[in-house]
Design a protein around this nucleic acid. Sequence first.
DNA 1: AGTGAAAACTTTGGTAG
DNA 2: CTACCAAAGTTTTCACT
Lengths: 147, 147
Amino acid sequence: MLEDLDREIVRLLCRDGRMSYTDLGRATGLSVSAVHQRVRRLEQRGVITAYAAIVDAAEIGLPLTAFVSIKPIDPSQPDDAPERLRDLTAIEACHSVAGEESYLLKVRVGTPGDLESLLQQIRAAANVSTRTMVVLSTPYEARPPAI
Amino acid sequence: MLEDLDREIVRLLCRDGRMSYTDLGRATGLSVSAVHQRVRRLEQRGVITAYAAIVDAAEIGLPLTAFVSIKPIDPSQPDDAPERLRDLTAIEACHSVAGEESYLLKVRVGTPGDLESLLQQIRAAANVSTRTMVVLSTPYEARPPAI
DNA sequence: AGTGAAAACTTTGGTAG
DNA sequence: CTACCAAAGTTTTCACT
C-alpha cells in the first residue's frame, strides 16, 4: 500500500507538520530533493490531505465539546443530513455510523446555551432527533496514527 | 480571551499549518517579525499545541474507524482507564463523557479482525464493557474551528 | 527514483523606534 | 508591540545519473 520510506515520511509529518525537508532527509537518509518529491507525490495521491495547526479549543473560546448522534424523524425522507448540516461550523466532524443512529457529530461550542441552540439548529436543518454526550474532559485527542 | 490579530493568525494556521510567516504577515498586515513573535507566543501560551499533517486513514492501511464507549464493570474500582489504555496506539482519542458510559474512544484499525482484538484488549486492560459504533463513511472530519 | 547545486525565499536573532 | 536588517537555513527547480 505504502512504501517503507513513504510510511516513515508520513509518520514524521503527522508528528510535526512543519518539519523541514532538510530534517526529513536527515531522518530518512534521503537527499532533500528526493524527500521533497516524495512529499509532493504523497500530497497529490491524497495520502496527505492537509497540514493544520492543532489548537487548544478552550483557549479559542470553545471550551465545550460534545458528541451528538442523530436519527431521522421520518426515515422515508432522503438522507442528506451531512449536506444540510455542512454550514453549521460548530460541527467539526460528521460520521455515518452503523447501529441505532445514523450519524455521529462532533461539535465544539462556547457555552451550554450555545449547545442548546446548536442542537435546535441541527434538529431543524436535518429533521432529526438528537442524543448528546457532553465531553467532561479529554485525556488525549488527535494522537498520530500508529504506522 | 484572544486578540483579533491572534485569532486571525490561529484561524489561518488551522487551515494551512505550513503557511509561512511572510504570507501570514501579508494576510494580517503585520511585518514578518511581528507575526513570528505572535505565533511564538501562541505556541508558548498553549493556544497552538502542535502542527500535523492530516492523512487519509484508508491510504495508510487504517480504513476502519469506530467509536467505542466504555463502562466500568466494577464501578467501585479507581477509574484510571485513560492511562491503562494509553499504549493502545489504535486509540486516536479518549474523551471522558457525561451519561451512561464513562469514556468515548475513537479508534482506527485495518480490518474487522483488528477491531475485534482491539476491543478484547480494551476490555482486558481497563476492566470495562464496550459498545461500538462502526463508522461507515465520513462526510467530513477535522474541520477547522469557526473562530 | 535518486543526486547536487544555484536562485529565490523564509526563518531567526539583534537592534532600534 | 512593531519594524528593519542581515546571517543562516530552507524551498524549489533543473540538469544529470
